[in-house]
Amino acid sequence: MRVNRILLSSALVVVALVIQVSVLARLHLPGAVPDLLLLTVLGLALVYGHVGGALVGFGAGLLADLAPPADHAAGRYALVLCVIGYLAGLVKPETGQLKSATGPMAVVVAAAVGSTLMYAGVGALVGDTAARHVGLGSLLFTAALYDLLLAPFVVPGIMALARRAENDPLAESTSAAARATDISSGWLSGGTGLKIGSQRNGLRVKAARARMARAGRIKGVKRL
């Protein structure tokens, strides 16, 4: 990943995690907790693609695993967000522009349900049965509902910031200078070069004609 991607992703992930732990987790909503970190990963994955989404998801999940008050095994949420970021990056639009909000909203619902199922499945493998006591059905419904309600305020802004960070002024100036160099060199070789060549050929022809004319005059004098 490029430096601007790393800096932006790190800043957004840290801010999202702080807000989720300090604000959203304290709302005591029924069922699941709105997953701002998941929405951040989705927004970045829809711009950076599957590789960038997987890397961002793994880093965000690992940070959430290590940040207090985490009470689960380290690496559990990192695995979940890594897979979610990879899958979300696969549906990245080729043009980079979204034609409608239907696609991203479907991605949010699928990611909310899929991350909850994966988190519960990994927990069952390591002996964590908390999802059974809360009720997996209510967790799935509330997770999808909360994330879907929060997504319009988060995902478009994240994607806009990511696209803006992709427009590197230094890279643009470098590419513009390269294009100007190509154009100028092409203009010199295709335009002025040919003119100079034709002028040189014309001068050579004129010089040859002048020499022939002088030779003819000299021979004429000798014949006289």
Rank of each mutant, 00 (worst) to 15 (best):
R2K: 15
N4S: 14
R5T: 11
R5C: 09
I6K: 15
L8A: 12
L8C: 05
S9E: 09
A11R: 00
V14Y: 04
V18R: 03
I19N: 02
R26E: 15
A32C: 14
V33F: 14
D35W: 01
D35F: 03
L38W: 04
L44T: 01
G52P: 12
L55D: 03
L55N: 13
F58W: 10
L66I: 03
P69T: 05
A70H: 09
D71I: 08
A73Y: 05
R76L: 12
A78H: 06
A78E: 08
L81K: 07
G85E: 11
L87N: 04
G89C: 09
L90N: 06
Q97S: 14
L98K: 00
S100C: 05
T102F: 14
G103I: 10
V107E: 13
A112T: 02
G114Y: 06
S115V: 04
G123S: 06
V126Y: 12
G127F: 09
G127Y: 10
H133K: 10
L136R: 03
G137P: 06
G137S: 12
S138I: 12
A143R: 05
Y146I: 07
D147C: 07
L149M: 15
V155G: 06
P156K: 01
P156I: 05
A171Q: 14
A171E: 14
E172Q: 08
A180H: 07
I183W: 04
G190L: 08
T192C: 01
G193H: 04
K195A: 06
G197I: 06
Q199C: 03
G202C: 07
G202E: 12
L203Y: 09
K206Y: 05
A207V: 08
A210E: 11
G216S: 14
G216V: 13
I218A: 13
K222Y: 11
K222W: 12
